[in-house]
Amino acid sequence: MKPRALILTGAGINADRELAEAFALAGADPRSVHLFDLGENPRLIFDHQILALPGGFSYGDHLGSGRLLAGFLRHRLGEALGEVVARGLPVLGICNGFQVLVKAGLLPMSRGRIEQEASLVHNDSGRFEDRWVEIGVEARAARRSPWLTGLATLRCPVRHGEGKLVGSSPAAMDALEKAGHIAFRYLEAGQPATNYPANPNGSWHSAAGFLDASGLILGLMPHPEAALYNLQRPDWTRHGGGEGTTDCLRLFSNIVKALG
């Protein structure tokens, strides 16, 4: 049976359809579940084998990106949130979904507690931008996360205004890096990118995403679900043509395989 993926929708989430498409293409059975239905019945999560938080502007990001949806999940899902971790349910957050995971305290969770340890703040440029980036999957992360098996580099768009990943202090960020919580880094010529625009937002350590200790909870600012087909790449008319799918799809098929 295909693993069921819960795709969270509602309240300003807006990249849910393409995320559902990614899971469907990867062989999962995506089910869109409205945030408020989940608030009414948090146990709905456990009818699914994957929890996915899409991008968008939940609650308009009016109190900071992802802040209110994170508050909603912490407050309304409460125990179920802890149970997601306890049961080892694979969780993916993309863009706003990643901001929510960080602000709800599900990532990086380096202390084994659901509490916020890092943040995503305004890009150094002060601007929302849509541009393609190259991100490298950290080798350690690829070894220990079922999402990342066999992946090295991915190309996909960033589309955010608040994507600068920072720790509570430089030392804290160093510690997160040492502990293997950085899953992706923005790359320039194969190296971690320090300069704009390859590092599009000024993220510390060029970090583009986090992984929790179990390897099951993964989040990133760029949008792999918007880069499933070669036709979606900005330069397909120059390089490679418009046939076929990309490595970004493997992120989704990896987890389906691991569950199967």
Binding site: R113, G180, L259
Partner: peptide, 18 residues
Amino acid sequence: LKVAPSLAGPIHGDFAPL
């Protein structure tokens, strides 16, 4: 929001069983 420490899992080990 506290999670039982034993569930946090080792950071450098294999990923947790699904």
